[in-house]
Computed example of a mutant assay.
Amino acid sequence: MTSSSTQGIKTVLHPVSDLGKAKAVYAALLGVEPTADESYYVGFDTGGQHIGLVPKGGPQDMASPVAYWHVPDIEAKVAEVTAAGATVKEAAHDVGGGRLVASVVDLDGNVLGLLQDQ
């Protein structure tokens, strides 16, 4: 049994090649306008989830969508999953507003995102 549970997947980031065109598609899909609309990131909040669009995979070099598991203690969760065999892809760091993100790779090469809101 692990010491810290997750709060579920609430954030999914998608790498996109054309941010403007992708924004239109996701706005049509989700039925809402973006809550964040910058040249480096477009985000939508709907149904208790955050869907983000990252041009060309962003600094984390995403090749496919990454689901972010919300956790109360990101450092503890990184320690738990690496002890179980995952490897760190992106160490925990603040992305603004006290939000911490990290990512790990499971034994099959799947990227798992972790997110902690302060």
Rank of each mutant, 00 (worst) to 15 (best):
R99T: 15
E75H: 08
G52H: 08
G47A: 10
H50K: 09
I51C: 00
K21T: 15
A36V: 14
V104R: 00
S4V: 15
L115K: 04
V101F: 02
V101L: 03
V32N: 00
A22Q: 01
E80C: 14
G97E: 00
L107H: 09
E80L: 13
I51K: 01
L53P: 07
A36E: 11
T87C: 02
E90G: 11
A86F: 09
G20N: 13
H50F: 12
A24V: 07
L112S: 03
L53F: 10
G48N: 07
S103L: 03
H14T: 10
E38M: 09
G31K: 01
E90A: 12
A91E: 11
Y40D: 13
A22T: 12
L100D: 11
S17E: 12
V105Y: 02
V32P: 01
V111A: 01
V16C: 11
D94E: 14
A28E: 07
P65Q: 05
G43N: 03
K56L: 04
A79I: 00
Q49H: 09
E38T: 11
V88L: 01
D37H: 12
P59E: 12
L114F: 11
F44G: 06
E33D: 14
D117Y: 06
D18W: 03
Y68M: 10
T87N: 04
I9E: 04
M1Q: 06
A27E: 01
A86L: 06
L19D: 04
H50I: 08
P34L: 07
G31V: 13
A27G: 02
D18G: 09
G109C: 10
S3H: 14
A92V: 04
G85Y: 00
D45P: 05
L114Y: 03
M1H: 02
T35W: 01
T82P: 04
G52L: 04
H93V: 12
A86I: 10
Y26T: 15
R99Y: 14
G52I: 05
P72H: 07
K77W: 04
T6D: 15
L107M: 13
F44H: 01
V32T: 07
Y68D: 03
G31M: 00
A83C: 13
D94I: 13
S4K: 15
H93I: 10
H70A: 10
S64A: 15
Q49N: 08
D37T: 12
G113H: 04
A84D: 13
G20I: 10
P15G: 09
I9V: 15
V78F: 00
F44R: 03
K23I: 10
P72M: 06
G98V: 05
G43P: 06
L19H: 04
D73Q: 11
V25Q: 03
G97P: 00
P65F: 13
V88S: 13
G96R: 02
G48M: 02
P72R: 14
D18S: 06
Q7Y: 13
A102K: 06
P65V: 08
E80K: 14
T35L: 00
G58S: 05
A84P: 03
G85Q: 05
